[in-house]
Design a protein around this nucleic acid. Structure first.
Length: 618
DNA sequence: GGTGCTTGTCATGGA
DNA sequence: CGTCCATGACAAGCA
């Protein structure tokens, strides 16, 4: 019957009907329930055929002859019957007037219902905060990192800053057994630059609770790769790094404290590149930081982050916390990152309202999915509307029912809104379907309306009418089982009627289930897309934070470097002469003190520390 | 006429 | 076992 219904649903044209019949005979799902005959019949014809079958059952024919196989065999007979039955296809006027009344109700409940949605859409869409990025952020990535406002001689403050940062590293105690002199905490840089009395070569530079032990530094941050970036402050660093070292420069290229700054093993050979391998914790951190920074750039490229955008991110961090700004979704970035993976989503999120469906469908079509609206705004709408709202056309979307029977029972006036597709008769109309029609009504318009409603009626409704089912399809479908059985028991129903009723119930429930299923599927897709957008936002945010951290790190390194210069430059031996950077280096002890040690010793320690991280990694 | 989308329907499996 | 529900698949209708 279903196959028959389908073939005849559109009016049962010969071509379509025969095509359906052919497919039926071809064996495709022949065994489906109620698959049956008929190719040229109209909807009502087919319904009547079915009715005749059932009447035959009532007349005593065994139901088994209506089994699928039997029906299959009787297709020819049914076709013949159909021709004859067409003449009976005149429904008693009982429906005309009722249907006429239904029209109004149906129009109110069904089709006019979604009229308010477009406004909601626009409002909701407008309510979505624009993620546009401030335009003035077109600075280069890794733009000047030092503020330049700091007094280079504000050593106290600088050391404080540095120490606080270093402490965060939870640095392990410097393994050096060569802590020759631990100075008591005191005035940091004041005058305590003399060598320890018990050693001519080591000196504790009591640097005010210095806790830089074991802290060497990876200067890869200042590798040419990074320095090629427009880092204004690099000019302040470069004098410390050159291979043709002056006294101070050689200090930083060969000393161990700064091992902190430059790996001794690279001295003289790779000073310019400021060797990246340093053993200390900070060095490791910086190693990774630098690698990450490189990978960050890769990510940036991959994400549509060009250097300008990255600098925008960095600049953004200057101004605020950068919360929720997503350059990959901003309209401005859209132009600069066209074709990137984020552009599609940004287009879908930045575009809205009327263009939602088109943009969304484009983004979806790339995924091979159906072109439903995928806007997050639409999603918001959906949530605001309590579950529906996927489809760009609201007259259609409203047909998508998401029916919670309990809710519907609580809201009877909505009971037929969601699934007015086939069960689109208004409750009153459905309930009154069995009432005798008003006698005094204008026939002309009423007939038209009746025809219209006849077309609007579902096949099952037609069948129910044909079989004179004494209650509405709505009840058949939506009543709980107990009430449903109770209802059935109230009437003396033929076997055919009962069968039809059960079919109607089954189909109706399944129809709603299918609608809900499709809605859920859309829900899933939309949620996934929203998740993707959220993750992209998170990714962008993390990238921004990363840039910011790298920048802070760079600033700290520069501070440390300048402080090293300052401290080392103030050191004097017993004769009041400055130490040679090529022979001595400053080294941080684990307890916060700073030692002046020979370079050879510093080099050894640096090598020792260098092996540890590698071993750890293994 | 081909294509994509929507919808109804059935079969099936799980609860 | 009957019922309900979810879902894949198919077909028809439509733009």
């Amino acid at each position: 019957m279903t196959r028959l219904d389908r073939s005849s649903h559109s009016g049962g044209g010969p071509a379509k009907g025969s095509r359906a019949l052919n497919s039926l005979l071809a064996g495709h799902r022949v065994a489906q329930p109620l698959s049956a005959s008929g190719s040229r019949a109209s909807v009502q014809d087919i319904d009547l055929i079915d009715i005749l079958w059932r009447q035959d059952i009532d007349l005593g024919a065994g139901r088994e002859i209506f089994d699928y196989s039997h029906r299959q065999k009787e297709q020819d007979v049914d076709k013949e019957l159909a021709d004859g039955v067409e003449q009976e296809d005149t429904w008693p006027g009982e429906g005309a007037e009722v249907l006429a009344r239904n029209l109004l109700v149906d129009g109110e409940t069904g089709e006019s219902f979604p009229a308010q949605f477009p406004a909601d859409i626009s409002s909701l869409t407008e309510a979505v905060p624009s993620e546009s990025e401030p335009p003035g952020l077109q600075n280069n990535l890794l733009s000047p990192l030092l503020t330049g406002t700091e007094s280079p001689f504000d050593l106290e403050q600088q050391w404080q800053d540095l120490m606080s940062i270093m402490e965060m590293q939870a640095m392990e105690v410097n393994t050096s057994s060569e802590i020759l002199y631990n100075a008591p905490p005191g005035d940091p840089l004041s005058t305590n630059y003399s060598l320890a009395p018990n050693t001519p070569i080591n000196q504790n530079v009591s640097l005010h609770q210095a806790s830089l032990g074991g802290c060497s530094q990876d200067f890869s941050l200042f590798s040419p790769e990074v320095e090629s970036l427009p880092v204004a402050s690099s000019s302040t660093l470069l004098p410390l790094v050159p291979s043709n070292s002056t006294t101070l420069n050689s200090t930083f290229s060969s000393t161990n404290l700064a091992g902190l700054f430059f790996p001794p093993q690279l001295n003289g050979t790779a000073n310019d590149t400021a060797g990246p391998e340093l053993p200390d914790p900070l060095g490791g951190l910086l190693d990774e930081a630098m690698l990450d920074e490189i990978s960050l750039m890769d990510l940036a490229i991959e994400e549509g982050f060009n250097s300008v955008q990255a600098s925008q991110l960095e600049e953004e961090f200057d101004s605020d916390s950068g919360l929720s700004l997503d350059s990959s979704h901003s309209p401005s970035s859209l132009s600069s990152s066209e074709g990137s993976s984020s552009s599609s989503s940004s287009s879908s999120s930045s575009s809205s309202s009327s263009s939602a469906s088109s943009s969304a469908s484009s983004s979806f079509s790339e995924e091979g999915a159906v072109g439903y609206s995928s806007d997050s705004e639409t999603l918001d709408l959906e949530e605001a509307e309590g579950a529906v709202g996927y489809q760009p056309e609201y007259s259609k979307f409203c047909r998508m029912s998401y029916q919670d029977p309990s809710q519907l029972s609580c809201l009877p006036y909505l009971e037929h809104v969601g699934h007015n597709h086939t069960y689109n008769m208004a409750p009153s109309a459905l309930d009154s379907a069995d009432l005798p029609p008003p006698s005094s009504l204008k026939k002309g318009s009423k007939e038209k309306q009746a025809d219209f409603l006849d077309k609007q009626m579902s096949r099952d409704e037609h069948r129910a009418r044909a079989m004179k089912i004494p209650f509405t399809n709505d009840k058949i479908i939506n009543l709980p089982v107990e009430e449903f059985n109770e209802l059935l028991s109230k009437y003396q129903l033929s076997e055919a009627q009962l069968s039809l009723i059960r079919d109607i119930r089954r189909r109706g429930k399944n129809k709603m289930a299918a609608q809900n299923c499709r809605k859920r599927k859309l829900d899933t897709i939309l949620n996934l897309e929203r998740d993707v957008e959220d993750l992209q936002r998170d990714k962008a945010r993390l990238l921004r934070e990363k840039v910011e951290f790298l920048r802070s790190l760079r600033q700290m390194k520069q501070k440390v470097q300048s402080l090293y210069q300052e401290v080392f430059g103030r050191l004097r031996d017993e004769n009041g002469r400055p130490y040679s950077p090529s022979q001595y280096a400053l080294q941080y002890a684990g307890d916060g003190s700073v030692l002046l040690i020979p370079r050879t010793l510093a080099d050894q320690q640096a090598r020792r520390q260098e092996r540890k991280p590698k071993d750890r990694r293994k």
